[in-house]
């Protein structure tokens, strides 16, 4: 590693490659690409120490558009490949770019296990709730009843909710952002890369061709204030144009209340991203459109030792105790005898 503290940060543009970006005009991926570059620049990342690993799908073309190291792999396996990269060199800044099909369908198993192991990797799951690259079949996050080419009568599968899955596997950093809310997206990405441990970020990403306006409720001028709720640590859950609405707990269930008439902010549920138990984060992940405003921002951010640190600690401890292994000690372990 050649981290030189005195060098100035690269610009976002310097993180871009010379390849033509081949997403459809208007795709939400463009915005995500820009904000990732900004987040890297803002956090002082080095191109040579940064690796983007992806699977298959529209989002997975991402590494080609970066000037860092990159690996465009096979469908669903990015998390597993990234695990190997990180184990080979724990100093690297490793990112996984995946989609709802890549990450939750064919690659669901790897995603789950990368999360529970708490490797220091940033997983960006671009959720457009559709298969784009294969031209418009329903995905594991498509809503029940979704009509697509492969479900002309409506999908009869119930969807997975990415953040509920990640929290179920006890991800140490869980967040959600929206492609077109660029400032907030960049903020979330910076938080993700600064977190030591697994960072799981679901990004609502609009597919203009096969699932246009799927997130209109969260991005539309007239609906976004009532249909989203931007989380702040240690702050009450308020939303609405004038922040006059809030979320209160009724027993175990959240309910929407209007502030005033005896209801104050102190009656509301307060966000605590550092709560060790994931129950609050899980409850937030269950608040869904249209019944509830969907929470955006950092759901959970807790500390836990990383897989690679613990792996390297075991190696250091063994080397301290047994000495650095030599061929002689390898060969002559256990019972040996001489033949003359």
């Amino acid at each position: 590693m050649s981290a030189d503290a005195t060098t100035v940060n690269l610009t976002p543009k310097q993180f871009g490659s010379d390849q033509d970006v081949r997403w459809c005009p208007g795709c939400g991926d463009f915005s995500i690409l820009s904000q990732v570059k900004k987040a890297l620049a803002a956090t002082g990342a080095k191109r040579e120490n940064t690796v983007f690993v992806s699977g298959i799908g529209c989002s997975s073309r991402f590494p080609y558009y970066m000037s860092t190291y990159g690996f465009h792999s096979i469908h669903g396996r990015a998390a597993a490949i990234a695990t190997g990269v990180k184990a080979a060199d724990p100093e690297l800044n490793v990112w996984v770019v995946t989609g709802d099909g890549d990450g939750l369908s064919i690659g669901g198993n790897h995603l789950l296990h990368a999360v529970r192991r708490n490797l220091d990797i940033n997983i960006l799951l671009f959720n457009n709730r559709i298969y784009g690259l294969t031209k418009g079949q329903y995905s594991p996050t498509s809503p029940y009843g979704k009509k697509t080419k492969s479900s002309p009568h409506g999908a009869v599968d119930f969807p997975l909710h990415p953040l509920s899955v990640a929290i179920g596997a006890e991800a140490t950093f869980v967040a959600r952002a929206l492609d077109v809310n660029v400032k907030h997206l960049e903020y979330v990405l910076e938080r993700a890369t600064q977190h030591k441990g697994i960072s799981f970020v679901e990004i609502y990403q609009n597919c203009v061709i096969f699932n246009d306006s799927a997130f209109e409720y969260a991005s539309g001028k007239d609906t976004k204030d009532d249909q989203t709720l931007y989380l702040e640590h240690n702050r009450p859950l308020v939303f609405g144009k004038d922040k006059k609405k809030g979320i209160r707990l009724n027993g175990m269930d959240p309910e929407i209340v209007d502030l005033g008439d005896g209801v104050t902010e102190d009656d509301l549920l307060f966000h605590n991203e550092r709560q060790a138990e994931p129950s609050l984060a899980y409850l937030l992940s269950r608040m869904r459109y249209p019944e509830f405003p969907e929470p955006m921002g950092v759901f959970r951010c807790v500390e836990r030792p990383t897989y690679e640190d613990m792996m390297m600690d075991q190696i250091s401890a063994a080397r301290e105790k047994q000495g650095v292994g030599t061929l002689k000690s390898l060969f002559e372990e256990g019972e040996t005898w001489e033949v003359n």
Partner: peptide, 22 residues
């Protein structure tokens, strides 16, 4: 560095990643 993966696919893929990583 021994990584007991979640399945055979992750096993080979992690090895490919580690090879890329040097």
């Amino acid at each position: 560095r021994v990584f007991q993966a979640e399945d055979e696919i992750a096993a080979v893929c992690s090895a490919i990643g580690a090879s890329f990583g040097g």
